[in-house]
Design a protein around this nucleic acid. Structure first.
Lengths: 338, 338
DNA sequence: TTGTACGCGTTATCAA
DNA sequence: TTGATAACGCGTACAA
């Protein structure tokens, strides 16, 4: 691999001058500039990025922490983030934590070891106190996941309100025994959702019933298991709030294909995220739409602004609007006739 | 940020000795080792990865090139790859090419600029001749995408055979006017599929009809458009071979929800990849299963082996078995009665 | 307008 | 068993 030194020699000039050409700096005669460019081409010279990093203390790379890519929500999120980051010339490192505290901390180390300039956390399982120290090494921005204690930038929707609306909708449809189906660890975000769920219940004179709650469902096959659990052990349940379209889809699939339960009349179901699957299911799934692309774009933008203008303190909250999409998995016949 | 020098000073020893402790090398008294470890903890010292890279000429990072993450096939692929790579201590950079020749070349530059040690190409739109020169800078491994001209390692299934079987299945169901629906650029892989499609047709005395082919469909909404195109302009089509479960799902959704066409009797449909969605659709979608995780694991393994043992030439073909999963989108009633 | 010389933080070599 | 020193490749004061 040719180095800047080789180019300099071939062009009969100094490293400095070559460096000037590489970085588009002034004070180089056109003639010499040409000679250098010629030499670079002849040698197939490309600047060594490790050396540049060491010199500039910048990596032009960011890390995105998330639980798992197979969750389409995070797939969409990182797709948009990578696209946006690449426009700014930044690379994106994928960091799947699988909701493990240890992995999350390991990936945060990337900031300390200067492998990345900044970090986007789209998931958070550790306490904020444990994450905070890393801020000394570079900026961190939250996307989707959020909390009240910290003052770093957070881009997200109002999950409490969204859960409130979805639950209220179920109650309006006449549901009286609603199962709260969630998965993964109790994150700050999932707490918010639960708050909204409980608030809606209480307005209908109901309270949270632990025996109707399920906290281990994150994907389609879990959704299938959930249905059987409800059918066999909680047959009085007539509505399901779940934070995942995948879980909702699995549940509906199982109900439709292996029982005579009718969705939504025997069991109304709401999902979350407005994944493709929620539209394609029969019946289609009532869900909460998130402006994923906008949130991803803004997150990258906020992070990169901090990298380009260190010290500038961006606003720390960007709350995006959501929308409850009412579909067939909750439109009960008795009501639509009314 | 503390450097190795700071640690050395605090411990009253030399950089060299500190370096030895960091890298678990022998020839350091236990007492001094302890003193150094103590100093590192006191200072919160972490080795600077840029400096290490420059010194060692290694990045412990690989790049994965793919068209787009929102295609769940690639989401699953990279999920498994990242997991496997992280076990070896490697970082993964996501590189979405969006099927652009330029972006593909740009990302390959990561190899030249030493930002990554190796590259996995899960998509290929440029000619092999244009990619080949990058091999001088580090190993490249193909996954899913493949071709005959090159001799670098390729991990994939037999797409020609898979397409042949899927098409034969449609023909056995009595289809006589099969539309070939594909998307993205003509890659080496898509050529293979087409060969298999054509071979199956020819065994039934049929030949490829360009007027029944569609080459711009890659996602659900394209699938919806495809259905209307067929209904309005190619109503004699009675079967669809498509290289994507998403396209198949969109097509089936549209047929079911906005027409009186019956799937599979009026139109039999096969997808590809065995995505969750192909199972959940009503009717469920006949598709080809790929052993994604095994392929991803093997790909990472082969690449890292090349990094750990430079010069070792791994076998250049790993062909994984596929499986045609026959579901309701092709099980015609007339035949199941026979 | 060009070049000299130093330092970014590590690790490998070699001498002590 | 330890340490001084020289790279790794680049960018940039500063001097010319």
């Amino acid at each position: 691999m040719a180095t800047i030194e080789d180019v300099a020699k071939l062009a009969g000039l100094s490293r400095t001058t070559v460096s000037r050409v590489i970085n588009d700096q002034p004070y180089v005669t056109d003639e010499k500039r040409q000679r250098i460019i010629q030499a670079m081409n002849d040698l197939g010279y490309v600047p060594n990025s490790s050396a540049r990093r060491l010199r500039s203390q910048k990596t032009e790379t960011i890390a995105v922490l998330l639980p798992r890519l197979t969750n389409p929500f995070f797939g969409n999120l990182i797709e948009a983030m990578e696209e946006r980051a690449s426009e700014w010339g930044y690379q994106v490192i994928v960091c799947q934590t699988h909701d493990s505290k240890k992995k999350e901390m390991d990936y945060l180390q990337l900031l300390k070891t200067k492998q990345v300039d900044g970090v986007i956390m789209a998931s958070l399982v550790n306490e904020w106190e444990d994450v905070k120290p890393f801020l000394e090494c570079g900026p961190i921005v939250f996307c989707n996941e959020y909390m009240d204690e910290s003052s770093i930038p957070m881009i997200h929707m109002d999950h409490k309100q969204a859960a409130y609306e979805a639950t209220t909708h179920l109650l309006e449809q006449g549901c009286t025994h609603i199962s709260y189906v969630s998965g993964g660890p109790e994150s700050h975000l999932s707490k918010k959702r639960k708050e909204g769920f409980i608030e809606a219940l209480s307005e209908y004179g109901l309270s949270f019933q632990n025996d109707l709650a399920i906290d281990w469902a994150i994907d389609v096959s879990d959704g299938q298991k959930v249905f059987h659990l409800i059918k066999d052990e909680l047959p009085h349940v007539d509505g399901v709030f779940t934070g995942s379209d995948e879980v909702a889809a699995g549940l509906i699939y199982e109900a439709t294909s292996s029982s005579d339960w009718v969705i939504p009349d025997d069991l109304a179901v709401v999902g979350f995220d407005n994944q493709m699957i929620s539209l394609l299911m029969v019946p289609s799934v009532t869900t909460v739409e998130q402006p994923v692309k906008q949130m991803a774009d803004k997150t990258v933008e906020v992070l990169i602004q901090q990298l380009l203008h260190p010290g500038s303190l961006p606003p720390n909250r960007y709350v995006y609007p959501h929308q409850l999409l009412v579909r067939n998995s909750t439109k009960r016949k008795k009501l639509s006739i009314q």
